[in-house]
Structure formats: structure tokens, C-alpha cells
Design a binder for these strands. Sequence first.
DNA 1: GTGCCCTGTAAGTACCTGCTTGCAATAAAG
DNA 2: CTTTATTGCAAGCAGGTACTTACAGGGCAC
Lengths: 180, 180
Amino acid sequence: MYAEVGYRGATTRRIAGEAGCNELTLFRHFGSKAALIHDAVACCGPESKLIPLPDTPVDPYAEVKPWALLHFAQMREHQAMIRTTIGELEEHPELVRPSDPYVLAYDQLSGYIRKLQAAGRAHADVDPESASAVLLNTVLLNGIMRDLMPGVIPDTPEFHVDQFVTVFLRGIGVTVPPRA
Amino acid sequence: MYAEVGYRGATTRRIAGEAGCNELTLFRHFGSKAALIHDAVACCGPESKLIPLPDTPVDPYAEVKPWALLHFAQMREHQAMIRTTIGELEEHPELVRPSDPYVLAYDQLSGYIRKLQAAGRAHADVDPESASAVLLNTVLLNGIMRDLMPGVIPDTPEFHVDQFVTVFLRGIGVTVPPRA
DNA sequence: GTGCCCTGTAAGTACCTGCTTGCAATAAAG
DNA sequence: CTTTATTGCAAGCAGGTACTTACAGGGCAC
């Protein structure tokens, strides 16, 4: 409910109704609305079960694309929560989970790029963190906006992620075979 | 106030107080809170004064980078509004302005890429819309999150936008001289 | 069966929500 | 000066907000 209507919209009465219990029970369990929301967000956020990127890059396109697709699926699955968190970030910064998969993916991809650079397979003059942001920001925004702006984002997710990965990899200096 | 605390948070009493007028005056002028917020958002959104991208690309890096920097500045200037709009997109889709600079920039950059492709200066197998999203999503998210997550985004805006543009241009097949 | 714990009901706190009514004050336009 | 339009003030509406108190009932371990 927090993901859908935000902190102010998720009233204790609505929560109790949705939960099928008395409003008073909520306060007996959590003490306050703030504690309730905080616990709820901490519990039902996205899980950090990401397939890892290989330690030694072999075929970047074959490795990054499924990884990006999984990351995209996670962003899309939790799109309502992510959107609300972004919108209420100023008022409720404490509701941002430091273990969010975005940050973990960020570190993962940065490390991967660094290994590509060390192997001489990626341009040495690009900043790995900035390059990671290029792919992850693109995938994140596409994943959380796609369903709400079908007119603006008409193509399929698979096509978009493929394009994003292609442009990203070529951008850091990795050769990707021509797309169909 | 809508940009800062959202639709529910921007109560008529708070608005009247901030405006230095009586709460009743608001209702006499706008009729309802919904009409007030709607008018306010329609009036004080980001202006669409973008420097145009050249009709015939000559030096893509020299042309895209200042353009992206200006776009970034606009996103950052209206970051609170953009964040709130994203967070409340589900509940208040009518508050999204169809003339938002993001959409205009999207079309601008797509057309620019198409001209680069026509001139044989960009890979023909990349989708211009997807490629535009790569740069614009990256710049947008960076612009609206940077100030609220200083630990995650430590570098300067200029450095980041430069990196984003570099990766983006190389990603679509444009050669960019090595960064310092 | 007897405590014990959890839950539900009922009522109520003080305050906020969008919104309305009645009436006086003010200021500009004719 | 009179008319007219706009504003402010005070009060109030019905309903919602988080949250509390007091009390009764039901299931469980012992």
C-alpha cells in the first residue's frame, strides 16, 4: 500500500482494512504508523538475488545481456515501490534501503568493466562508475516508467534491453556483432 | 509545495499560509484543490527552451555535450517536481505535462541520431529511440538523484555528463577522442 | 478449570482535511 | 459618491488522521 499510495496515502485505517484486522492491533504490534511503514518497507523490498557477472569476462554481450535482463525484471517487478521511494525520497530518506539491488548491481558492473579494462578489452579512459550508471539508469527508468507510459515506450522490453546493452558495450569499447 | 510534499502533503491551509492569503481566497479563485494543483503544475513546470541540435551534424561531441549539459541543468533545476511526478504518476497521471522537455529532447536526439546514421557516421543497426533513451535516462536520473544521494554520486556534474556523452556517442558508432 | 495472552468492540482524544456560509472592510471603476 | 469586485475574518461543516483507554471474548498452556 505504501508503494501504491505513499506514506500519507497509506493510512492506518486503510492498512487495517486491507490486512483484515482491527486498526488497534496495528498499534499494539508496531507502536506507531512510522514504525509500521518502516518495518514493511524493510521487509518487502526487492531481494538481492542477482546472478553474478563472471570474474573473468569472456563474451561480454552474452554475459551482460541476461544479467541486464534480470536486473530489468527486478526493477519492473518493484516499479511501484521504486517510484514512490523516488517521490518521497526528500521527506522519507530513511525508507531507502542501503542494500538495494541497484547499488549492488552498480558495484558489480563497475568491477566487471574494470576487469575488461585491465584485459585491454575496454577503453581505459572511461570511468567504470559513470559507465555503469549509463546502463543501469537507462534500464531502471525504462523499467519503472514503461507500464505507465505505453505511448512513449511502445517497444518490447527484450528489444530495449538488447539495444541498451549493445550501445553500452560499444560505448565502453567492446565490439558487438550487428543487431538484426 | 506540490513538488516538495506531493498532492496530499500540499494542503489548502499550508498553501494559503505560504501564499500569505486566506484559505478561502484559494477556493474563490480555483474552485477546488484539484483545480489549484492542476493549474499550478501546468504553469510552473520546466520551460521548453532547449538549444536545438544542428540540422546537419558536424562535430557530434562538440554539439551533443553542451546540449546534454543544458538538458541536465534543466532536469536538476526541476528535480523536486520530477521526483514527485514520478512518485505520484499512478495516482495523478493528469499532472504529467505532455510538453515536458524530456519528450521534446527525446525527439530532438532521435532525429539527430537518424541524421548521423544517414550520413554513415553512426551504426545503422541501433534504434535511434532506444539510443536516445540511453543518454537521456542516464542524465535524468543522475540529475534528480545527485543532490539527495551525495555518497552514491560523488563526482561533479560536468565530469559525469562528459562521461555519459562519451559512452553514448561511442555506443552509436561515433568516434570520440580519448578523455583526459 | 484457571490464568494468560491476544484480539475485537466501542468510544473518545485532539487535530487536520477540503470546503462553505455570513458579513464586514477595502479599493478601484463608473 | 455610488457601484462593484475582491479580499479578509470568524465560524463551522462532515469527515478523516494517528492514537488511546476501557472492557469483553476466545483460544491456549498448564
